[in-house]
Design a protein around this nucleic acid. Structure first.
Length: 235
DNA sequence: CCAGACGTTGTT
DNA sequence: GTCTGG
DNA sequence: CCAGACGTTGTT
DNA sequence: GTCTGG
């Protein structure tokens, strides 16, 4: 799954990597502990925008409902995103990418690490990760505009399955433009874009200190590899 | 018909 | 807003 | 995702 | 134990 991530690249680097022309009207600080409901960058076609992480249910009646609903919708399952009331409209017409330097996963019972051991996952080629996302715009009764976004997940594969049974859905560069093409509304066609040949291509991971657990902690030390005394090799 | 959910994760 | 369960 | 609250009264 | 907020 994906419930915490890092983005330490500068806006100009993100723009270069995703070939975007338009930049947002403000800059977000680099952050090694990005959490749900926080503002993050999203990429839609050739522009970078800012949206709050966690999709606001379209029928939310006030800002409090909106906050609560988005805390519950930070991820959308790729298997069902096209039919869930909260997500289906955004899935049809508001697809985006979410750039990340890497993300955190907490090991689960059957994996290679002790349960709750945080692990940092990133690319082995220093490129940014591109999570598949869906966003939507919600307007409060007071007229406040809130853009929000959810990250799509799938079954974990390969090495990553030894850490956790779910992982974010990554889109390879050759699918970016089709994914972000809002004129593409055929649901089955869109769904087909989520079938990656190598869902874990270029990924690597290592255990990190539990500093990331608290949202009050931040800094590059959160992603530093650590040595674990006696790794449990169950495979 | 109205009321209440609408989401994901992991764990049992 | 729309669907499901009662 | 994890951490932290989970309650009421009266007073400022 | 479960929900909410960040």
């Amino acid at each position: 799954m994906c419930g915490r991530f890092a983005l330490s690249a500068l806006l100009t680097d993100i723009a270069e990597e995703f070939s975007t022309k338009a930049l947002p009207d403000r800059t977000l600080p680099v952050d090694w502990n990005i959490k749900p409901t926080q503002d993050i960058y999203i990429i839609k076609n050739d522009e970078i925008n800012i949206a709050s992480w966690g999709l606001i249910a379209p029928w939310s009646k006030n800002s409090h409902d909106a906050l609560r609903s988005q805390s519950q919708a930070i991820n959308a399952r790729s298997e069902s995103v096209h039919e869930k009331p909260t997500f289906r409209s955004a899935f049809r017409t508001h697809r985006c990418l979410v750039p990340a330097s890497g993300y955190y996963e907490w090991a689960t019972e059957l994996g290679r690490y002790k349960t709750k051991q945080p692990v940092f996952i990133s690319r082995d080629d220093n490129k940014l990760l591109a999570f598949a996302g869906i966003y939507d715009r919600w307007i409060s009764p007071q007229g406040e505009i809130k853009d929000s976004v959810a990250i799509i997940t799938r079954d974990a594969v390969g090495e990553l399955a030894k850490v956790h049974n779910r992982m974010p859905l990554f889109l390879s560069q050759d699918r970016w433009s089709a994914w972000m093409d809002s004129s593409l509304t055929d649901v089955e066609h869109i769904r087909a874009l989520m079938n990656a040949l190598k869902p874990d291509d270029h990924l690597r991971y290592w255990p990190v200190k539990p500093l990331v657990n608290s949202i009050r902690n931040n800094g590059a030390e959160l992603v530093e590899p650590i040595e674990l005394g006696e790794p449990e090799t169950l495979f």
